[in-house]
């Protein structure tokens, strides 16, 4: 059994050690907000936080995680799923199109603004490497700036 701390709850899961964190979160813990897109760390749809750092969970074996490490998924970003400043900005600007990549985008953005409270355009485009096939990039950028109070 493997012990994982996800969104503040300790879970005991019966998973093989090389199982990617993404699939344990989705299939064994039952949190499906983190998405499978490519399985090779390219798209970022699986982005979660591990001790505050954004990680591509499809590339992390569960055996590499320690029980005390704090994993946060999109479901744990805010207590009500609505109140994180990025979530508010995402809604205000109607960022998502299909929505499939947006959990990963928001988690990537949340890690960025936790480290850099008022990111510049350059910092945003350098740090935000997740793929959005619908092309919501400019609204994502605008939402990050709105949430952080950065100028236009």
């Amino acid at each position: 059994m493997i012990r994982l701390n996800v969104n503040g709850v300790v879970h005991q899961v019966d998973a093989e050690p090389d199982t990617p964190l993404l699939w344990v979160i989705r299939e064994q813990i039952g949190l499906t907000g983190s998405k499978f897109g490519c399985g090779v760390g390219q798209c970022g749809a699986c982005s979660v936080h591990v001790d505050g750092e954004v990680m591509r969970s499809c590339q992390m074996a569960v055996s590499d995680l320690k029980p005390e490490q704090k994993i946060v998924t999109i479901e744990g970003l805010s207590p009500d799923g609505l109140s994180h400043p990025l979530q508010k900005a995402w809604v205000a600007l109607d960022v998502p199109q299909c929505g499939y990549c947006q959990s990963g985008q928001i988690m990537a953005a949340a890690a960025l603004v936790a480290r850099t409270p008022k990111p510049t355009d350059d910092q945003i485009v350098t740090e935000m490497s997740n793929i959005c096939r619908c092309g919501t990039y400019n609204r994502i950028k605008a939402a990050i700036k709105q949430a952080t109070g950065a100028a236009g």
Binding site: L31, T32, G33, S34, K35, T73, I74, E75, L77, S78, G81, L82, Q87, W90, V91, D94, V95, P96, G99, Y100, Q102, S103, I106
Partner: peptide
């Protein structure tokens, strides 16, 4: 939109 910002949207 809202459910696409908090993981609730079911695909």
């Amino acid at each position: 939109t809202v459910d696409k910002t908090n993981g609730k949207k079911v695909f």
